[in-house]
Design a protein around this nucleic acid. Structure first.
Lengths: 227, 227
DNA sequence: CCCGGGTTGTGAACGGGTTCACAGCCCCCG
DNA sequence: CGGGGGCTGTGAACCCGTTCACAACCCGGG
């Protein structure tokens, strides 16, 4: 069915440190799902009975207001899980998940997940710590948007993103993720124009460079001092 | 030690639906703690190894920025738990908890809590759904502050608070909670002055009344239409 | 009973950031 | 390889809400 099955769950935040035998068993409960870039996996308000594990590609979590304004929370990457909230409390999907790049996902159905949770104590505990992290990350996002002004917010978010999606290059830290200025704006609650002007200012100061549509940070400590 | 022990955990969101015998056992692991009004139980940044259960009184969850600006998240009441995050991920306290009124708390230490979690499958599952609710509530708060302007935000929050802390009176729905306009402001990310002006406007329109420092909502559907 | 700190009430000035408008560009797809 | 839709770049106007300043008030404690 799936190539190299035994590896797919190895890097997963939720199942990663289970014994390989257990991982194999869990993998057999999953189906696979491919999403092309720009397509949504599900939308806010949908009912939902599945949890997803990212095996390749990146996606964004976002919501759209009645007036069409978009707000993004996080960028998901390989090993991350999503869609678990609806499984835990039976409510509808609280946000929309959209693929930024073509993605491969594993899908785990509600009924199988409940079984796992009851059988493997360890999974529940791990999930608790993941959710605790989600609560913290979300409140941090809210706090930043209230306490910090746009330049600081943007600097902080670029560094955060680079910590997760960055690669060291000879030129500095490269944020290996193609985000338009509009998308970057939705991630920090700012308009596209504000993002544009700030990025431009930093480019002329040499704080960042744009290489092939990606942000390159020659000296991270310089950006940090702007947070 | 404690009067009417058997009742103290009955209304708790985390332990409420456990068999009474188990509740009694858990209660024996807890110590009690009294906080006078306006005093903090702990501060953001503190290390922490305890979880708390509110048995009486109300408290607020808030954070303060470097510049002294305050932002509040939720109001806790009897049966609510708090301080569980630090237990689950070992990090520091992410916010400050302050008693609004004199409060009675039960305190559960990290080591005992881990034991409970391993012994009672059910507690872990319940905690998962509580945390899922926390994630949703926090993202909702952030969304509202981004998508909705002050009048709508205030209306929505007053109704939310009234749903948890309101009592039906002959005059309408009474928000039975003494909050200063400043505190109300920190709950919706608005300045004290803005809250004042909006409340005043609604009073003159008859949408709300202030009785003994508390907000009275004669016709909730009127406020709802303003969200 | 009266003083005083915290709270409420209210207008004026200010400001960070959005919205709007438009120009140039890049590159993707037919 | 040429057209066009989406990005990027940039100033000007505008606006919601904050900040500031000050007056009045209320209630609790010495």
């Amino acid at each position: 069915m799936i190539d190299h099955e035994e590896n797919l769950l190895a890097g997963s935040e939720l199942f990663g440190d289970l014994p390989p035998a257990d991982r194999k068993q869990i993998l057999e409960l999953c189906s696979t799902f491919s999403v092309p870039a720009k397509k949504a996996v599900f939308h806010q308000g949908d009912p939902g009975k599945e949890m997803y594990i990212v095996t390749s590609g990146r996606l964004k979590i976002s919501v759209v207001s009645a007036e069409g304004k978009e707000l993004s929370f996080f960028i998901l990457k390989k090993g991350d899980i999503f869609g678990e909230l609806a499984l835990l409390d039976g409510e509808r999907r609280s946000a929309t998940i959209t693929a930024i790049e073509p993605c491969e996902l594993l899908v785990l159905h509600h009924r199988d997940f409940r079984g796992l949770l009851e059988k493997h104590q360890q999974i529940g505990l791990k999930l608790l710590s993941i959710l605790a992290g989600r609560v913290r990350a979300t409140t941090d996002l809210y706090e930043d948007s209230v306490f910090i002004e746009i330049p600081g917010r943007l600097a902080a978010r670029l560094l955060d993103l680079a910590a997760e999606h960055g690669i060291e290059s000879s030129e500095g830290l490269l944020l290996d993720l193609k985000l338009s200025q509009y998308e970057l704006g939705t991630l920090i609650n700012a308009s596209r124009e504000s993002v544009n002007k700030q990025l431009k200012a930093w480019q002329s100061q040499g704080v960042i460079r744009i290489v092939d549509g990606k942000v390159l940070i020659p000296a991270p400590h310089l950006l940090e001092s702007l947070v």
